[in-house]
């Protein structure tokens, strides 16, 4: 096999594997959300389909496909159809640069090891707003429209805070490549960026909640004000796409958090923080990464059912007048510390 052909073949394999794992995770994140919310609210939650409700995602999917796909008469057809497609994109695309394992055989377990990895991710994340804005515009009615406008303002604002919050991490590592960021965190718990740059982590995770439209920042779909916000007019599989888009960007954001702050696929025990030499170690690394992501997702779900929603002006105030100055101060402080250390 020529190297080019090999590259294409293995890249295609990795893309298919990553996308399938993401879709499976989306399905079970929805189930986890329902079970955890039930637990928080002292209910039982869906437990009828299969053992402990484990086949519930299958039932949900069949239901979404079989329901009538109703298109209201007043919508702008083209944008109305385009929006659910665009919503799915960011979650899928941002997986491309995230290292989900060290290596399996001779293949590095990352689809594209870009030297500007994080900038690519931010670029893709910033495209996430298109789906929601177009849904609001295409629906051509007032609540979706307000939801779309709100979400574009919110996502642009928190993108700034998010980008500023990660800069100290890259100042410490000295590279934008995400594999290097993980390599830098190998070799001990205290090397994890969450302990080296705690303020960065807090700002990043808060901005991540805002970017994925999760409570306490889910203003674009605040039920008591906007019905369901941008997806009010959608039904059946188109609505399901919005749902899946939200959960896949939530998983992608968790994967980013794990990569930047929790050491990615490394674990400072059992020698798991060095690139794998054997297949078993390679598989263990992937398992470590997926478990960390699953824990992050559970944290995001738990937060959703524990905190009340912000008011819209509070949200903007927090983003621009608290997070942005804090982020800038954090960069300055990190620079001073690094300079003092020489």
């Amino acid at each position: 096999m020529t190297p080019t052909l090999e590259f294409f073949l293995f890249s295609a394999l990795k893309v298919v594997a990553a996308a399938s794992v993401l879709m499976a995770m989306v399905a079970y994140t929805v189930l986890a959300e329902r079970r955890i919310s039930a637990f928080v609210q002292d209910r039982i939650g869906p437990n009828r389909v299969g053992p402990a409700g484990l086949f519930q995602p299958l039932a949900d999917a069949i239901k979404a496909f079989l329901k009538e796909d109703f298109v209201p008469g007043h919508v702008r057809k083209f944008f109305f159809w385009l929006a659910p497609v665009l919503v799915m994109l960011p979650g899928l695309l941002s997986l491309a640069v995230i290292p989900f394992g060290s290596r399996l055989g001779s293949q590095p377990m990352v689809i594209a090891d870009l030297n500007v990895g994080i900038l690519y991710t931010f670029g893709i994340v910033s495209l996430g707003v298109y789906g929601i804005v177009l849904a609001g515009y295409g629906s051509n009615s007032k609540y979706p429209f307000l939801g779309g406008v709100r979400s574009s303002a919110q996502m642009i604002s928190y993108e700034v805070a998010m980008a500023l919050s990660t800069i100290p991490v890259f100042m410490i590592v000295g590279d934008l490549n995400l594999s290097r960021v993980i390599g830098h965190q190998a070799g001990g718990w205290s090397h994890w960026m969450v302990f080296q740059a705690p303020l960065s982590f807090i700002l990043f995770i808060a901005a991540a909640f805002a970017e994925t439209n999760r409570l306490p920042f889910d203003l674009p779909e605040a039920e008591n004000e906007l019905v369901a916000g941008h997806n009010t007019e959608y039904s059946s599989i188109k609505f399901a796409l919005f749902f899946m888009g939200e959960y896949s960007s939530m998983i992608a954001m968790s994967a980013m958090t794990v990569t930047l702050f929790f050491g990615g696929w490394t674990l400072p025990v059992f020698g798991l923080d060095q690139p794998a030499a054997t297949w078993a170690a390679g598989i263990a690394h992937i398992a470590v990464f997926l478990s960390k992501v699953a824990l992050m997702v559970c944290l995001m779900i738990y937060v959703r059912w524990m905190w009340p929603r912000f008011r819209y002006d509070q949200l903007m105030d927090l983003g621009w007048r608290r997070f942005v100055p804090l982020g800038l101060a954090n960069i300055l402080a990190t620079a001073l510390v690094l300079w003092a250390r020489g």
Partner: peptide, 11 residues
């Protein structure tokens, strides 16, 4: 390339 997407297409 990344900045083009981030700034122009994204913002």
């Amino acid at each position: 390339g990344a900045v083009q997407i981030l700034i122009y297409a994204g913002a």
